[in-house]
Design a binder for these strands. Structure first.
Lengths: 192, 192
DNA sequence: CTCGTCGATGACACGGCATGTCATCAACGG
DNA sequence: CCGTTGATGACATGCCGTGTCATCGACGAG
């Protein structure tokens, strides 16, 4: 069993299987590693803690930062956000609506996973902010654009998962984006 | 020592003192309770976990929800946000800039506190969303307004703490709000 | 083919976190 | 004066997460 391939994958599969059978909180790390044929200590070599096996490390922040930095330089930030979110929606969520919903249900059912989920959003914002700064945005506006992108994404994901009929997530994103706008300083503030 | 008054307050003070002396991670719950003259078990009767002693329970979400529900009904949501944030800034942050900065530094220095901090923001959003729904907003727009309020507040707090000279936090908030706007559906989306 | 290196895993110990359970004690009302 | 009630102490327990060192397989050098 030692040196069997894909230790990380085996741990992930064993974990998700057990979480589905018993729930997240009721599943212990020794249970996961026993099913994967590894020791408890090895689990913590692949995942910083039990929560991390649910989330994909820093894959999502990395992907978002890459997409932002690869966007055409002449695009306005809000259009960069649109571009990135459409790409993410099409490649990572369309066609996986039910799995995604189950994933969100599991997170929302456990307090410690809700903590980590919120933290992951903050990490995404931080990565996106850096990417906007690299595009030449000032610190403050980069932060606001990054936060706004995360806001739209989160609201759109929740809404998309709650819809009765499956449709491309990009449609939901487009609807949400008609509600939210971000302006540069010379724009007129609303509601003053 | 048993039945001495204000057990919760003693625990909070002992905790903050020790966190200041040794740092958060290096301080154990038994250390805190020993200084407060209580037992470890009692700590967990007042705080759900070691992190919670840093944050004020659900006091902030409750205060925000109350302020939103007490705002004049004729106000636009963005003006409700302005009203609430100005009130919070004036009563809870102005004059406590250095303490607040130290508090934020402690949170940012520890991973588990960053998790919880992000979660607290999500809790605030949830409470504000409910309050906006009670004002008659639709679920989706209530969510967006609540998220936007939290966004403005977080960005403004960071910016305010980073400023070289102390000034009313409301000034910083006003600046941030000139950058961000939220429109109802009939408004024109920007950047399309 | 053999050996030495190197990275991955096992084995073990350990402290802290968090919770369940029951006993104990002070306050308070009758 | 006593019984009730709520807060606290005392104790046991299980899991989480980490440090440390031994061990094993893969792989390249000779």
């Amino acid at each position: 069993m030692r040196w069997a391939p894909d230790a990380r994958g085996r741990l992930e599969r064993a974990a998700f299987d057990l979480f589905g059978e018993q729930g997240y909180a009721a599943t212990t790390v020794p249970q996961i590693t026993a099913r994967a044929g590894l020791t408890t200590r090895t689990f913590f070599r692949y995942f910083a803690d039990k929560r991390e096996v649910i989330f994909g490390g820093d894959e999502i922040p990395r992907a978002a930062a890459r997409l932002i930095s690869e966007a055409p330089p002449e695009l306005e930030p809000i259009d960069v956000i649109r571009l990135v979110l459409d790409e993410v929606a099409a490649t990572r969520f369309d066609g996986r609506r039910e799995e995604t919903a189950a994933w969100r249900r599991m997170i929302n059912a456990d307090d410690s996973l809700r903590d980590r989920d919120a933290r992951k959003r903050a990490d995404l914002v931080a990565a996106a902010r850096t990417a906007f700064v690299d595009r030449g945005e000032a610190q403050r506006s980069a932060t606001i654009f990054a936060e706004t992108g995360a806001l739209i994404f989160h609201v759109a994901l929740d809404a998309w998962l709650a819809e009765p009929e499956a449709r491309p997530m990009g449609d939901t994103i487009a609807e949400i984006m008609t509600w939210v706008c971000v302006r540069r300083l010379e724009g007129t503030p609303l509601g003053s």
